[in-house]
Each structure stands twice: as C-alpha cells, then as structure tokens.
Design a protein around this nucleic acid. Structure first.
Lengths: 238, 238
DNA sequence: ATTATTAGTGTCCATTGGACACAGTTTCTT
DNA sequence: AAGAAACTGTGTCCAATGGACACTAATAAT
C-alpha cells in the first residue's frame, strides 16, 4: 500500500510541477483519471484494475505507479474529476430554496452519470477541490439564514445523503426505471412468499404499484428536507 | 462467481433443510456469519477473506463453499445477522414521530456497532428478513397518517439515508469523536492552505469549532426530516 | 453390504495490487 | 562536448485473493 492521507491530499490538490530532468511523461493525472472513469462508467468499479487502465492508455500497469501511489488514490482522482466543480446555473436572485433544489438536482445527475461514485465514496476519505466546491456552494446558499455554521454544514450533508440513497435505489431498479430486472423479479417472488410477515410493507407496495418510480422518491425526500429546513429558518427569523 | 440473485434469496430466506445423507456438517450459516462479523467488526470489511473466516472456524477455506456460493453471499448473510430484526422498545401508545425517532436511533446504533455495514450495503442487492423487518416497522408507523404507500416507503428510505451518512461521518472522525485523527489534521492543513477558495465553508467551520460533533449532525438531520414529514402529514390532515 | 449423497481437504489457477531492478531519455552542470 | 543526475516506462517477481475441481471419508437408505 502507498496511501497515506497526506499523499492523497498532495495528489488531489497539487501542485504537480513537471520535473526538470528526465524523459517527458507520456501521461498526466487527468488522462489517467479519465481512462479510469470510462472503465468504471461502462463496467463498474469492480472492473477497474490497474491493468485495464494501463491497457487503455497503451502503457504498462507499472507505469501508472509513476503518477499515482496506489489504486485508492486513482479512485480518489476519478471521483473528483467525475463530479467536477459545481457550476451554478440559476439566476442569483433566487432564494436559498431554489438554489439548493437546483444544486441537488445537478448532484443527482452527476451521481447517476457515474453510479460507481457511490462505491468510491464510502468511508473516511479526503475530498478534492471539485467535490469541495459542491459543498461550498450548498453551504453558501444558507448564508444569512440564521443557521449556525454547523447547521449549514449539516443541511448540506443531509442533502448529499438523500442524493446517494436515491442513486442507490435507481441503480437497483436498473436502467429501465421499473423493477423488471432480475433483482426486481426476485424481490417480487420474495414478497409473494413472505409478504404476510410484512403487512405494512406489502400494503405500501401494493398501493404504490405505479406511481412514478424513483423520481417520486427523489422529489419526496428533497421536498421533505427543504420543508424541514424552511421550518427551522422561519422559526429562527421570528 | 457463484452469485445470482435467486441463490442469494434462497440463502437469506431459507429454508435450509439438513440433507438426509452424508456426514453431519460441522458448521452452519449462523456460525459462519458470526465469524465473519467478528472479523469485520475488528478489522474492517477489507480484511475479510474466506481464508480468515475459515481459519477462525478451524476449517479450510474451501469448506465454506459448501455453505455459501461465494463471498458476496457471505457478506449478505453477515449484514442481515448483524442488523438483526428490529425490536420495538417504545410503548405502543406513542405517535409516529416518537416511534420513528426511536427507530432511527436504534438503526444508527446498529450501524455504529458494525461500521463495515456501510461498505457492505452499497449497490443493488437483496435484503434479508432482518433488514426487511426494520423497513416494515418504519413503514408501519406511518400507517394511517394519510401518506400514500410510496410516500411511506420514501420516508423510511430517507431516514435510512441519513443514518448512513452520519455513520460515514462518524467513521471519518474516528472513534474519539473529534477530528484529531490524521485525516482531521490533513483536512485542517487543507483548509488553512486553500480556505480562501471556499469562504462559506471556512466560515461555517470556524463558527462551528466546538458545538457538539457528529451527534449534533445526527439530531439536526433527524429533526429536519421529521419536521418535513410532520408538515406534510399536517397538511394532508386538513 | 452396497450405494447414493454429502462434507471437508488438498491442489491448482487466473487475477489482483504492488515492490524492485533496469535500460533509455532528457536536462543541468562542468 | 561530456558526464552526472534525475526521471520514465518496462519486465520480472511476489503474496494474497476468490474460486474450480478432484478426492477421500462419513452417513443413511436400500
């Protein structure tokens, strides 16, 4: 292993000065990260190996270790490159709620473009500049709302959690959107056989049937969180 | 690989009839799962290998494959055994909010007892009876609140997402609770060096300083979600 | 007693992440 | 111009991993 946190920070945050001597490098961190992203996008994070990344770049696996101390660092680079910096699109005259809503939608879109980011962002880790810019924006929208610093952070984290959960659900449902994957079929069988042990669940699922799929779940959670925030902010304002 | 979803379901949901012929098995699924849990509890999911589980049971690695088709299935068993069925503790006269609050606290406690469950529950998968009983309870508390089936499910999922996010934060902060781990130190350095690029974040962190750590974040998100739910329920009731 | 099953073992294999020595390339110094 | 220094990509090697498969021993039905 080559992965201390300090190395990770240096890699994510630079600078990366081109060394003065020696042959010119064939690769750079950006190309490596993009190659990894392409693999993970199409075949999932489990299919990501140093070999495959190297092969895609026309280079030996060991060449990568000249740029990256280990696989964990490569994945961290991929995450930060895949999510990129947040670019606010809305007009700046809107209130915090509109901004956070748009922000959440874009974050969700990012996660769904790169579902492997779910697996890559579990556990303690160091965020890169891109990822941090997302957090920065979310927290900044809550400036002047009367929330404390910790509360503004907590609110952002709460939204991130929701985005992650929805991404996970969407991935389970498969790309079609409805649970007619094999997993969905197995789950159906399961409920048909053991449904009586889970009456509330069964009734909830039946009454659900067709009501909008995961998009509904996303909107529901988003609005509930924003409502909860609004309630607190209003209460503080009085 | 030996892991179709159907096999996973059979393994998690049984039945597991003792075969009539042949020597008596030395192990059973429960003991295997518990051995795995002990390893993951103490050394993390990354340290879980078939070899180590087998060694702890005094048996060869290949013996495990008589019980479990593959590692993925073993992990699924571990998850369901670790979280276990939900046992409602509160008096049944309370309202949905109290029940959900207690439920969330217990779920969080479970995740913090077995932090590796975070890594083990990413991606599409089949839930076991234990896990499903937690979902069942959460959904059942919302019966009769005027929420639709889908909404009741979404509410439960929302809370699970929050629990997961908090667990992740707590794990990053380390067992002490404050960010004085190496990771925390590196993050501090990072903000000291690049803080000017993230003014809102910096100010939020400074004003945070000492305000309660991750417990605060947990309570904040929990109450925000419950407030949001209450708002919707009240609105439906009118 | 024979036979069908089943359980645990031992051996083998491909793949993985990574360590390390080496040869070739480029720039700085003398 | 000529080393020397620093660096790059390659080739080889290794331990550990999940898993396939054949084999022996144990059990119960016939």
């Amino acid at each position: 292993m080559g992965g201390t946190h300090a190395e990770m920070a240096r890699l994510l945050w630079g600078p990366h000065p081109r060394p003065a001597r020696g042959p010119r490098p064939t690769l750079d961190l950006d190309r490596i990260a993009r190659a990894g992203i392409e693999i993970a996008d199409s075949d999932g994070l489990a299919a990501l190996s140093m070999q495959r990344v190297a092969a895609r770049l026309g280079v030996t696996k060991m060449a990568l270790y000249r740029y990256v101390p280990g696989k964990a660092e490569l994945v961290a680079l991929m995450v930060d490159a895949a999510i990129g910096p947040y670019r606010a699109a809305g007009k700046p005259r809107n209130g915090w709620r509109e901004h956070l809503e748009e922000w959440g939608r874009q974050l969700l879109a990012g996660f769904q473009r790169h579902p492997w980011m779910l697996d890559a962002t579990v556990g303690p880790r160091i965020m890169g500049p891109g990822e941090l810019s997302w957090l920065e924006y979310a927290v900044s929208t809550l400036d002047g709302t009367g929330l404390s610093g910790a509360e503004r952070m907590d609110a952002a984290v709460l939204l991130v959690g929701h985005v992650r959960e929805i991404t996970q659900q969407a991935r389970a449902a498969g790309p079609t959107g409805d649970p007619e994957t094999e997993l969905g079929a197995v789950l159906g069988d399961l409920m048909r056989e053991h449904g009586d042990r889970f009456p509330a669940l069964t009734s909830a699922l039946i009454s659900t049937a067709r009501s909008g799929g995961q998009n509904q779940a996303w909107e529901f959670g988003l609005q509930r969180i924003l409502d909860g925030l609004a309630a607190l902010i209003d209460q503080r304002a009085c």
